[in-house]
């Protein structure tokens, strides 16, 4: 299963990068969303997908799923939520101010340099 997952995760990352390299702000944000999903699955997979019980102490259970990746992912999920929300508002505000969602039109700093 881990082998298949590795390829699926690679596909997720590829799609994420592809989207992040587009011009539209919304696509970029969706790309970052995919990127964090990919990262979460990556951490989970690298910890191993074995284990027959959730990592909660219970009588008679010995074979827990690895708790460490789960703790890391939990942190990552919440952070990626915060970041996604930040991006969304950033995109929304810059669209309001600049009236474009095309980042190739948002180059800054030209006035001072040239």
């Amino acid at each position: 299963m881990e082998i298949i997952m590795a390829f699926v995760i690679g596909f997720l990352f590829m799609a994420a990068v592809y989207l992040m390299l587009s011009r539209s702000l919304l696509r970029i944000i969706i790309g970052t969303g995919l990127l964090s999903h990919g990262a979460h699955l990556l951490i989970l997979t690298m910890g191993g997908l074995g284990g027959s019980a959730p990592p909660v102490l219970a009588d008679g259970v010995e074979d827990f799923a690895d708790p460490l990746p789960q703790a890391l992912i939990l942190t990552a999920i919440v952070i990626s939520f915060g970041v996604t929300a930040f991006f969304l508002v950033l995109a929304y505000r810059s669209y309001q101010e600049l009236n474009t969602d095309d980042i190739s039109e948002m180059k800054g700093g030209d006035e001072e340099d040239e």
Partner: peptide
């Protein structure tokens, strides 16, 4: 090219780590 490279990198990394 860049997207595929990143995807390949992650796959290779995941396989090796696993």
């Amino acid at each position: 090219v860049v997207s595929i490279a990143v995807g390949a990198m992650v796959t290779i990394l995941a396989l090796s780590a696993q």
